[in-house]
Design a protein around this nucleic acid. Structure first.
Lengths: 233, 233
DNA sequence: ACGCCTATCTATAAACT
DNA sequence: TAGTTTATAGATAGGCG
């Protein structure tokens, strides 16, 4: 059992080095988490080793990045002030956290509605949706249509063969109208049967989608930064 | 004398929290450095607290950033490979370190010569310059002149008086030529201290300077990541 | 190689200056 | 309030199964 004072220098024996690495990594992360908890501060540890495929990042890549970008965003004045009061420091952090939370909520909502949209495309109908969902769905469709229009307008001489895409945009370009008339009624009485409009639209959409799987429809319709690996792309 | 088992939860007493913070921060950084040394790995710790104006970043902002950007630059294949051998891991790191060193050398050389140029403008004359410096100075002047020409040509009716304030700060572009002569020797000892050549050159430059102490020449000539603000510009 | 154990070393909470 | 001391909790090196 450990007798010598443990010299801190590179361990040449592979197995011993790996063992030590495992233990000490664990210890370091624990210490970091304790410090963070005890003092209510933000901290981050990055360990980049050949033993792990990905670098170990505590508490998470996103948090680590956040700490940095938050700091960058802070007004110069605060940065140079000798020491913030604990209070203003915490307030600062709370504000930023709230901001992030809001953004997260927005993104989640967007993903949710995107799901709904695909369900509709798959023929689920809009009957079970409430007002808010319909509103958001409308918004989402609008955004997507704008995007489609923009893309179409990039072809200076759209030939007939692209006709369906154009038609799609032309036909669907009135999501507000869609929501304003027939749909709202449905919201009030969700139990009602499928309206003619809905069926018609479903058919239209199905017709419009020659082969939904082969083209990157996903990438065309999704937006926002869905990349969970933004930190290590 | 510590008796209780120390619950890990936010310390409400300000003074105690601050004291603990100081101790534990120190401990954490020590642990990190030990881990890094013992296992020959790259690690980084970021501590963002109201007690320090700047976030504490170990071993240095630049290193921290480097670890991340190095990783990003790695080919996908290596990232997904379960575990690199220690050897290839180290080779990878050495390559990247060398690359950085080369760039640093280039940048330093450029700054050196820029200094020389200003000395000349201040009337020091060219007597004390050796062949290499003269060559590089020539190159730098050429670059600056080209830049000036380019800028002038952007004014349809350029007046004479746009002058060299613009030119001075512009064009710090990468001179391939600079790499070819003396610099390569230094590359062989990556991460290490300042080589004799560099020292010699530093002396040369200092001799050329009116007042060596008033301008941060050292910081300009030194290698590695001495810039504490690089991470948080 | 992997996990468990325990003697020993290290970090640090609390007391004290 | 900050630095120093000291007793103890916690981390871990090396041994063993």
């Amino acid at each position: 059992m450990t007798s010598s004072k443990v010299k801190i220098s590179y361990i040449t024996i592979d197995s011993a080095r790996k063992a030590t690495f495992g233990k000490r990594k664990k210890g370091l992360l624990k210490k970091a988490s304790e410090l963070s908890t005890l003092c209510g501060i933000e901290a981050s540890v990055i360990i980049y080793s050949p033993y792990d495929a990905q670098p170990e990042v505590w508490p998470s890549p996103a948090r680590a990045q956040q700490v940095l970008s938050d700091f960058k965003k802070m007004p110069k004045k605060d940065q140079s002030m000798g020491m913030m009061s604990q209070k203003s420091f915490l307030r600062q952090r709370i504000e930023l956290a709230n901001k992030r939370l809001k953004k997260q909520c927005r993104d989640n909502r967007e993903k949710e509605i995107t799901q709904v949209m695909f369900q509709c495309l798959a023929g689920q109908g809009l009957e079970n949706l409430n007002m808010m969902d319909l509103n958001d769905l409308g918004w989402l469709l609008e955004q997507n249509l704008k995007d489609i229009d923009r893309r179409i307008s990039m072809f200076p001489q759209a030939s007939q063969s692209q006709g369906y895409a154009t038609a799609a945009s032309a036909t669907m370009a009135t999501p507000e109208a869609m929501l304003n008339s027939g749909e709202k009624v449905e919201v009030k009485s969700p139990e009602r049967g499928v309206s003619p409009e809905t069926e018609q639209r479903q058919q239209l959409i199905k017709d419009l989608m020659h082969s939904p799987e082969d083209m990157g429809l996903d990438s065309m319709l999704s937006f926002g930064d869905n990349n969970p690996n933004a930190f290590f792309p």
